[in-house]
Design a protein around this nucleic acid. Structure first.
Lengths: 319, 319
DNA sequence: CCCTATAATGCTCATACTGAGCATGGAGGA
DNA sequence: TCCTCCATGCTCAGTATGAGCATTATAGGG
């Protein structure tokens, strides 16, 4: 390879780098999206990538299935980081972190070592607009953002800050966009409204609610949530999180849990069966609390056919 | 970190890994999407990632700008590979390849070392459905795929193969989907219709046209094309590839070059100005070959506003 | 100067999709 | 029996989208 084609000319002894995998494993239970955590809910599971593994994805799969005793239905690479602030302190080795999103079915306890499933809204309470999320934005976050806007140097940057805050958090008449999870977290980070952003360790008195995580794991989780919220709109991935048989309302509740917002029931049903995503099992669910509902199963065939088209969410302002 | 949280238990001396960046740098000129290549058009530019760099992205930016003397308008991470077949032969080190997509403005010659800009259809002639692409699929590829379908073991897998071929290549009445670039390449690879798939080196007599590349660079390029084709539909990224002032037809031609298909002119214009993506400069272009056209410039402001909504392509069966 | 090719631009139309809401059916509990 | 909670069926208006017709504006050739 010609020298000019190389990203850097220093070709002699490059200091070794280490590769690390970070997994965001998602399940849905009890109307809540859950994420697998370690360190008493303060970190995402991670570990070194070793040459014994065939590939990144197989390493992740193998490990997660061993941990959760569940098949990982869907795995997707999220992002690779190598920022210098991620270098292990004192070590001369550079760490490259490769993050993955994985979907699995049940949130069964995995046992031991402070491993647990947590609602992802524990870390991002403002993202749950099914109920109190909107209030948190309005009461707790918006005031802080206004201060941040006013603290800008000049009128121009004040204007830019205001516009950015309005768009990402849906203020001043702008609509809430559930996909902007990462942008919102990054704004809060820049405005030093999240604990990770304060240089002197975790402050007890953060004005904005939401548990922090170690390292930049909360940012990675935000990336995963954003990706998943976007994906469910055009790919039938929700079904990876559903039991084999389910009612349409259960399906809707799962989507709502992920999207963090309520959907229009009739339109949701229309969309689902327009796309032939499910088929009736012939059975009925009687414990619905109302009229019994038909049970459905996912038509696995569509994963091939519908390689592209996919699901869209029928959103609604309110319900 | 608890042991159970690690991806693998072997914690002793992990063999070092090396990180490599691979760049897909895209520009548009002469109604063709161009990609920066090295090794006499046989490979994508790549190089080691070293600890001197602040981050992956800054390393890439720095290097590309130095090479092309152009500002990299848009940079996006594509994918990270670490498959064992990517290990350098004979070396005990594992190589992790991180690929990036970058957009830049002009395809000026970079000088020296077999660096050149190539139309990406040189590697994927069947992807250019503005003219001969559809014919290549029908005349050269479809017959091979039929053989591949018939070569399947049993009726079930034959059926699966047929369906897969029909969907990805738009056969038997299915519509052509320009986003399935990677799926198409992978199908051709599996069917051993591309040179990279034949184990005994590059064959001269491949039934399907299209230049191969070294290593898995053609696959990476396919990933980049697919990503970009999807992106231009909902994000105003085309403008990164346009000169400061342009006519609407020039803009349309650029989009068509990327998408590999022709667009309905009136609908394209409707979409562009519905979204307020551009503003008139007041000047006119007279060398259009017909009636003079207004010159426009991109409204940079929308990149903030339109953080999400974005452009959609008005497609058309034919023009 | 007229004619033709090539574009730019303006408008219309049918269809599909989408957000919303009304109405009715069926089961269990007070 | 009435009430509540859901399941399910259907309607309606606004908007987006794929297509195509018509008109306007230059350049170049006869």
């Amino acid at each position: 390879m010609p020298d000019s084609a190389r990203i850097s000319r220093k070709s002699a002894k490059e200091p070794a780098t280490a590769a690390e995998l970070i997994a965001v494993i998602v399940a849905v239970s009890g109307d809540m999206p859950r994420v697998l955590t370690i360190e008493d809910a303060a970190a995402l599971p991670s570990g070194p990538f070793e040459s014994a593994h065939r590939s990144l994805q197989s390493a992740l799969r193998q490990w997660v299935e061993q941990q959760t005793h569940h098949r990982l239905g869907y795995v997707e690479q999220l992002y690779t980081f190598a920022d210098s602030d991620r270098t292990m302190e004192g070590a001369e080795r550079r760490v490259i972190s490769i993050s993955y999103l994985g979907l699995t079915r049940e949130a069964r306890t995995t046992g031991g070592n402070a491993v647990s499933w947590q609602s992802w809204y524990r870390y991002f309470p403002w993202e749950d607009h099914r109920d109190r999320g909107a209030a948190i934005v309005a009461d707790r976050i918006a005031p802080c953002l206004r201060s941040w806007v006013d603290a800008a140097e000049d009128a121009v940057s004040r204007r830019e800050r205001r516009q950015r805050a309005d768009i990402t958090f849906g203020l001043n008449g702008r609509p809430w966009n559930e996909e902007l999870v990462l942008q919102r977290y990054e704004l809060l980070y820049e405005a030093e409204l999240v604990a990770e952003a304060s240089p002197f360790g975790i402050e007890a008195s953060m004005p904005v609610p939401g548990e922090p995580m170690l390292h930049d794991h909360r940012r990675i989780l935000a990336t995963a949530i954003a990706r998943l919220r976007a994906k469910i709109k055009y790919r039938p991935v929700v079904f990876e999180l559903m039991p084999p048989r389910f009612t349409l309302l259960q399906l809707q509740r799962a989507v709502e849990a992920l999207a963090g917002r309520l959907l229009h029931k009739q339109n949701f049903r229309r969309l689902i069966d327009q796309q032939d995503l499910v088929e009736e099992t012939g059975e009925m669910a009687t414990e619905t609390g109302g009229r019994p509902a038909k049970l459905f199963r996912f038509r696995r065939e569509v994963q091939v056919e519908r390689a592209i088209a996919g699901t869209k969410l029928p959103l609604s302002r309110a319900v």
